[in-house]
Design a protein around this nucleic acid. Sequence first.
DNA 1: CTGTTAGCGCTTTCAA
DNA 2: TTGAAAGCGCTAACAG
Lengths: 334, 334
Amino acid sequence: MNTPTPPRPATLHDVAEAAGVSLITASRALGNPSIVSEKTRERVRQAVEATGYIPNLLAGGLKSRRSRMVAGVVPALSVSQFLPTVQSLTATLAQEGYQLLLGQTFYDEQREEEVLNAMIGRQPDGIVMMGLVQSGKARERLRRTGIPVVETWDFSDRPLDMVVGFSHLKVGSALAGYFLSRGLQRVGMATGSDHRAQQRREGFLAAWGREVPTVTVSAPGSLELGRQALGQLLAQQPDLQAVVCSSDMLAHGILVEAQARGLRVPVDLAVSGFGNADFAAHLLPSLTTVHVDGPGIGRLAAELVLARCKGHSAGRSAFDLGFELIERDSTRRA
Amino acid sequence: MNTPTPPRPATLHDVAEAAGVSLITASRALGNPSIVSEKTRERVRQAVEATGYIPNLLAGGLKSRRSRMVAGVVPALSVSQFLPTVQSLTATLAQEGYQLLLGQTFYDEQREEEVLNAMIGRQPDGIVMMGLVQSGKARERLRRTGIPVVETWDFSDRPLDMVVGFSHLKVGSALAGYFLSRGLQRVGMATGSDHRAQQRREGFLAAWGREVPTVTVSAPGSLELGRQALGQLLAQQPDLQAVVCSSDMLAHGILVEAQARGLRVPVDLAVSGFGNADFAAHLLPSLTTVHVDGPGIGRLAAELVLARCKGHSAGRSAFDLGFELIERDSTRRA
DNA sequence: CTGTTAGCGCTTTCAA
DNA sequence: TTGAAAGCGCTAACAG
């Protein structure tokens, strides 16, 4: 064999030539094989093999107006809450030949606008946001592009386009109801600075009926910040009975700091988290938390975008997937 | 004002018309402003404003042969080890107007080939892999495309193209040296099934000089798997003195299970992790681990890709960023 | 400094 | 079932 490897990557033109068919026939053999004869299809297949052809999807997308890319935007990748969602989103899209373009806003409206503009310029077939789009300018711009947008991990009756999530206010009030039912009085909060954590706090206070000592930490929080938060809460209220946290990592920090201070959980102090991280069930004591179906959110978001791409304009556009309060040992009465 | 919003998004053509200049002048005013007169530049700027123009970067890339996208490939997004790297990679690229295309291999060669083909079809200006490219077929194909590739989080003297990482063998032997120097004899390992964790194990055994009881868990491990692993190790060797873990989460699980069993760390059992996760320093006891500069890896990988895009063909292509063993209380002699 | 011309690689018409 | 023509939106190359 003496096939000199072509210096530049093979194009569909090369494939057509090698197969002895026209360019468009080669295109159809690959993109719409059912309307091409068996024989031709096979010859094209061999030509692809021989040339090592990989289709340039950017070029195809220019004419067909589908990039087969979906933008996924997170506050920051390190916010572990969203990882299962982004993972299943990416995996579901990949199954259908779509790739994810990743963007980060760092909880900043300016950056949110920038990253969304950068995404729009790449003509994504859909955009999936973790959280609601904050910037009004960006909302307006997105609406005008007509690109399908799925906001997730939150809920709104008047979404930009589609929304898949749950009500953080309701999470907060569910937690308040739970702690009230346990007869706990002196509750404190360790809560992230982000919009969703603040919403849960509001929901909690509304149901609780009065203010509670609160330490706000920079989103999304960490074990270290949780440890510090307990110190600060105890300084404010030495006879604290419970701490409600906006993430499992913060709650974990509370558990560690409680142990360091010789406080027994839940006897001396009850603790709850949020997110049902995979470590929550296996801590000592196991952590009471709020479970959310992260992978389910990602899957549904992907399906909604894909459905739109195929022209099925779904009827419903707001999906409340709810949440579940999971009681474990960290709040269980002896 | 009575400017009817155009139903289809504005193109550069519309901008040029609105500004009263030719298409290419409008293009230059945006992409290479220094060679356009101040006056023209301003008129184009206003036309962009008026039309709400967002450049179609896919179309531009077709001709210029730069997509301004970089592919980033992880085993799975939930492998938290890589998150700081992907985060800084994405952020560094975004600063220069590049976006990240995300792919997942799920530790599977078949999927690795698929995801790399999907990426190549999108003409990325570079590819950053977390780990080495496993599939020989994919290595060959990547080499032929000529796309800059940076393999990370590992090291090789004969990389596919560029490599930014460190030697897992050396990490293993450093850990062995450390435990030997502590005079510990009966050591066990809890280790992930992935290639890098296995390499660290090999490095450890080579320096240790003999086999040790080992529990292998599915990569990347979790707190729960760590807890189970300690049970299994103790069943094999009841008088175990130390456990070397392939991740901080596994080590954390060992700590929790030790506490559940009434074993004191480090007095009864010494424990080490890997990765220096942000919780490691704040656990009780704080966790001895191996620190790796995750964000630094991402930043350097981005810079290498960007340098190649600008034509600077860097001399060096293998960067060993090393690692640092961080001794904390979980192995410290009383 | 500005414009004209010719594509990038592919897919959508339309016609055979 | 196959093909020819046209052009997606933009930029490189070469004039003026």
